[in-house]
Design a protein around this nucleic acid. Structure first.
Length: 641
RNA sequence: GCCGCUGUAGCGUAGUGGUAGCGCACAUCCUUGGUAAGGAUGGGGUCGUGGGUCCGAUUCCCACCAGCGGCACCA
């Protein structure tokens, strides 16, 4: 006999070897019916696997997040069975659960999007057949032989590559289909139900390695009921409406041309937004001691060889040769910053130094990587390099993180994840330096009460980094802010400061960008706000709209008054009905429409309609000016008045 | 870069082996209307680019360019 402790603390004594589903039916038959899996001592197991050890015990149903993962994992197996049935040349590889669904990768076939309904129909047949899904253990060499005979070379490779101490593996059978898998799974294919859908096809590399063969990936998703499935697709459709590429066109912010793939043509309204972001950042940075520099776009290749970028990234650099001298467009601002710092001698008394640059950099991104404003070939970083002593490192890192978070809060962007990227396999600098810097970054974050995830081996070649990631409309993660610690560039460029002892010492260099790329930040921000910018950021803050042309003179007067107050204002004097103008400027997401008619002209007032609000407010012109001036102020910036 | 898909006016789209429509936008005129589309008329297209097949190609084939979805990459 073994003892199981239920979630409510109740203890249950059962014979060893009992199945999870049998335990469930002891509690209630209903529970047994909807049990997806069980959890014994934090290990998930199939409901049909004999339980031989006592301990904590819980039943996983559709209510648990683990339940949904198991459902989707089983859906992936059903997908694999359907594909192998429909495409005899298909070889199954792997099919994991991912956020919002699952996928399965196949070798030996090409599947087009229009073939997905056919596969879904086959999956439905497998569900209708309601095969029991059975787990059994196989000796490792037996399993290898078994899958080799079934013509599943990828399964064989997976078994071969398992660690040496693995002696047996689990396989799952549903009908004639057999899959190598750790499990657990739904007890029967019928439990998958109807709430699944294949969503897209794409290519993927075997084992994520671009030098290996290309596989056919099929993505899908599954839920416990059709209502949730439908809600998921509704949510996706709404998210697509927030796509910055769509809103960028609708709001007339920017466009691209074939002549310059991945390089933005900013329109007046988009550029105003862009410049406002820079203006805001400049004020925030100035307030905490940053200075600003500007360095050349094009610098001699020798500089990039010194910095190490040539060795690492020459494939991704734009280069040109003039009079037999090779130059490269800067892909980073750091060497420029280093040269400015190095120009002259710096005393320890003058550290730390905060040297900022709104630097435009060019990187030849792979053609398939370009994505709207989120991944471009020319972008502007709100870059800064901080030179400090090792003793100052901890404080300086914390200051950057605090400033970064405060800035995101001003934009209402609080849903971020912080990643610590550690030393890559190929790098420069000694292990002692990496140890010191990785520890410094980790402590800076934890000491401030934030948590981070580790991206093993994902650091830059010259140092570890903290990345601040945000999601776009449909949930893809994009890195915005970055904070990098670097002892290598100072070494390579022989950067020094004069210490108290009169000797030269090596400073630590921090690289940091808070927006990261202004272009990317703009894109993510558009998607986060669905284009409804706060007043202080809106490219056009107020649109003056006369009811009839009789009020044109008053409208012009209002326009001039607001312009003089520094408000970004336009007047729509076209011969159109007021409802037409309201509609048009609302669609362009202009925060305030100031309607002026006969009454307003007579009384020197404005009737204000704020975006998204039905109610109208009548204000004296001068009161409105005061209000707009307050609304236009940047958050977290001190104003003297 | 890899695999698949797409490319028709500024934007959104229909369509075809016999050189193209529609809506919005734009222009002119009528209308001067108080909170999400008033009406009429009109201009605008080498159907992504270059080759090929064909009597004839925007349509079929090939290459290239660009975009989209993933993968790989991302200092």
């Amino acid at each position: 006999m073994i003892e199981l402790v239920l979630p409510d603390g109740a203890k249950m004594s059962v014979e060893s070897g009992i199945k999870g589903v049998e335990v469930a039916s002891k509690i209630s038959e209903g529970l047994a019916k909807c049990a997806v899996a069980v959890k014994v001592n934090d290990t998930l197991m199939d409901v049909t696997t004999p339980i031989t050890t006592g301990g904590t015990f819980s039943i996983i149903t559709s209510k648990n997040p683990e339940g949904l993962e198991i459902l989707r994992h089983t859906a992936a197996h059903v997908l694999a069975e359907a594909v192998e049935a429909l495409y005899p040349s298909a070889k199954a590889t792997i099919g994991p659960v991912i956020e919002n669904g699952f996928y399965y990768d196949f070798a030996g076939i090409i599947i087009k999007e229009e073939e997905l309904p056919k596969i879904e129909a086959k999956m439905a047949e497998i569900v209708a057949a309601d095969y029991p899904i059975e787990r059994k253990m196989m000796a490792r060499d037996e399993a290898e032989k078994f899958f080799a005979e079934r013509g599943e070379p990828y399964k064989v490779e997976i078994i071969r590559d398992m660690p040496g101490d693995v002696k047996e593996v689990s396989v799952y059978t549903q009908g004639d289909y057999v899959e190598l898998c750790r499990g657990p799974h739904l007890p029967r294919t019928g439990m998958l139900g109807k709430a699944f859908k294949l969503t897209k096809v794409s290519a993927a590399y075997w084992r994520g390695d671009a030098t290996k063969e290309s596989l056919q990936r099929v993505y899908g998703t599954a839920f416990f009921n059709e209502k949730e499935l439908k809600a998921y697709f509704t949510m996706l459709e709404e998210a697509e409406r927030r796509d910055h590429r769509k809103l960028g066109k609708e709001m007339d912010l920017y466009h691209f041309e074939e002549y310059a793939p991945g390089d933005v043509f900013w329109h007046p309204r988009g550029w105003t937004l862009f410049q406002t972001l820079i203006d805001y950042m400049r004020k925030r940075q100035k307030a905490v001691g940053y200075v600003e520099i500007n360095t050349p776009q094009l610098m001699n290749r020798v500089l990039w060889e010194t910095s190490g970028h040539w060795d690492w990234y020459q494939e991704n650099m734009f280069t040109t040769t003039v009079e037999e001298k090779a130059f490269a467009l800067k892909p980073m601002n750091c060497p420029g910053g280093v040269l400015v710092f190095k120009h002259g001698l710096t005393s320890y008394r003058d550290l730390p130094q905060y040297i900022g640059e709104f630097g435009r950099v060019h990187r030849y991104e792979a053609s398939g990587a370009i994505h709207g404003l989120l991944r471009v070939r020319a972008f502007t970083q709100d870059d800064a390099h901080i030179f400090c002593t090792p003793e100052q490192l901890h404080d300086e890192l914390q200051k950057v993180v605090k400033l970064m978070v405060s800035i995101y809060e001003d934009f209402g962007m609080t849903d971020m994840t912080i990643k610590l990227s550690t030393r890559p396999a190929e790098r420069i600098g000694s292990d002692e330096i990496w140890d010191f810097l990785e520890k410094g970054l980790a402590e800076a974050i934890t000491d401030l009460g934030y948590t981070y995830e580790i991206n093993e081996g994902d650091g830059a070649f010259y140092g570890p980094k903290l990345d601040f990631k945000f999601r776009d409309a449909i949930g893809r993660e994009w890195q915005l802010g970055t904070l990098q610690a670097d002892l290598n560039l100072p070494e390579r460029f022989d950067v020094n400061y004069i210490g108290e002892d009169g000797q030269k010492h090596r400073p630590i260099m921090l690289h940091r960008a808070l927006f990261g790329s202004l272009e990317r930040f703009t894109g993510v921000f558009i998607e986060n706000t669905a284009g409804r910018f706060p007043f202080w950021l809106a490219p056009v803050q107020v649109m003056v709209a006369p009811v009839t042309n009789d009020q044109d003179e008053y409208a012009k007067k209002v326009l001039k008054r607001l312009q003089r107050a520094g408000i970004r204002v336009e007047a729509d004097l076209r011969n159109e009905k007021i409802s037409y103008k309201i509609r048009e400027h609302s669609l362009k997401k202009i925060p305030v429409i100031a309607v002026v008619g006969k009454n307003e002209a007579a009384e020197e007032t404005l009737t204000l309609r704020r975006l998204g609000e039905e109610k109208q407010i009548v204000m004296k012109l001068e009161d409105a000016v005061k209000q707009f001036k307050l609304d236009a102020r940047y958050p977290s910036v001190e104003y003297d008045d």
